[in-house]
Design a protein around this nucleic acid. Sequence first.
DNA 1: GAAGGGCCTTGACCTAGATCAATTCGATGC
DNA 2: GCATCGAATTGATCTAGGTCAAGGCCCTTC
Lengths: 251, 251
Amino acid sequence: MPKSSLAPLKFTHVQCGDCPIRHRAVCARCDEDELSRLEETKYYRSFEAGQTVVWSGDRMDFVASVVSGIATLTQTMEDGRRQMVGLLLPSDFVGRPGRETAPYDVVATTDLVMCCFRKKPFEDIMVTTPHVGQRLLEMTLDELDAAREWMLLLGRKTAREKIASLIAIIARRDASLKMAKSEGRVVVDLPLTREAMSEYLGLTLETVSRQISALRKDGVIEIEGKRHIIIPDFDHLVEEAGDDSDGGFLV
Amino acid sequence: MPKSSLAPLKFTHVQCGDCPIRHRAVCARCDEDELSRLEETKYYRSFEAGQTVVWSGDRMDFVASVVSGIATLTQTMEDGRRQMVGLLLPSDFVGRPGRETAPYDVVATTDLVMCCFRKKPFEDIMVTTPHVGQRLLEMTLDELDAAREWMLLLGRKTAREKIASLIAIIARRDASLKMAKSEGRVVVDLPLTREAMSEYLGLTLETVSRQISALRKDGVIEIEGKRHIIIPDFDHLVEEAGDDSDGGFLV
DNA sequence: GAAGGGCCTTGACCTAGATCAATTCGATGC
DNA sequence: GCATCGAATTGATCTAGGTCAAGGCCCTTC
């Protein structure tokens, strides 16, 4: 798995003040002074499931990192067709220095807490503190890789492969967060409704439902309730996803 | 149109030594010393149409900027299904500091000249010269935006809308390069085969051909030869593309 | 415990685009 | 001028996934 990091620098996840989890918005190499300048401009915002954080076209005067919960970035066409273009799990970053308005809707899919920095001070710190910019570059390059993997999924995979891919992606992210993978057998709680899954995959929710049923019938996955999924053989799932070797390595 | 630039810095396109065209690999603010260090590690490589620059999985020990011609980034599944994930026109950048191997094929679609920098020295300059990293971040963010626009196209647009979008995207890029737009009526030379277009759009080449014919029959475009396209009414084309307002603003 | 309302599933049918199969066009070489 | 070869078009058919519609499941609220 190609791990990304700017060669001569070591970045690690650091505790963000009183954030409940470790996240990646800042750089471990920043000295106390730099960190405390970031601290000053920091604040938290909470959203309920379903709430829209920012509307496409709205002014967005902050950058943020997800503390808990899930948010999605979604583009909408005039006639209402929707395509998810980003899925933000805890530790992921949103926002773009140098951009005034959001180019897509940011929606809280579950209850959500974000750690925000006002954009202007954050940009200043980026200029005076190269680490932060370099960390951000690294994260943006990762996101670009993920977007390209996602493009392959949207353009060329079958509905069944799309579903298998999504479950594998979420399982991998989940596992890497809480390291709860018990040798082959993996358990995931889908954090998305069928509709959100369809927006991620470029399908209708009916097709999502049908293909999940098909994967269940074929023994690739087991389902408890509606969201709790057991993957008896992770490699088998990855095969169904049509990925080569290590396949989509990031969300 | 949301223009991206890191607020407090001004970047402009600068002549890259003896490059025949202005490109964006370096920053106008770099002083002579910094530029000359970049100059030292710079070299040119030429490829014929159809040649592969780098194979997916190969070592890639350089970063590069396209001088002339067109290159594509393409992902391939084991069974041969292919999806283009990047289209590099003159002035575009490839390569990723901190990554050893290429995650996709880079192919010269036309005869191609690239201006390359060996990766190691380039990374060193990135660390010592924040401008370069900041410029690269800005470019990467633009690419991410473009990728997300592309995801909407792949996931939700009809074949006709996809074709119209692609022609509009190329026309815009072309026009912004040589400013040759004569009020409404726009002329483009498609730099891609029908097959390459199908790999860009997630379609088959037959569907591409049929939809181009349909757009011609409906008067949205006129065609001379196979590649030369005249757009009598650019706004009409954009309408057909299904984009809202200014739509896909970058390739 | 009945009623309502999100979600989700399943079925019956339809259509956009894929697939398979000829041609046709146009450049290149002899 | 003719043969050749790759790129593009066009036609005939098939099918994966979309659309429309009817329930089912489960959780809340009264």
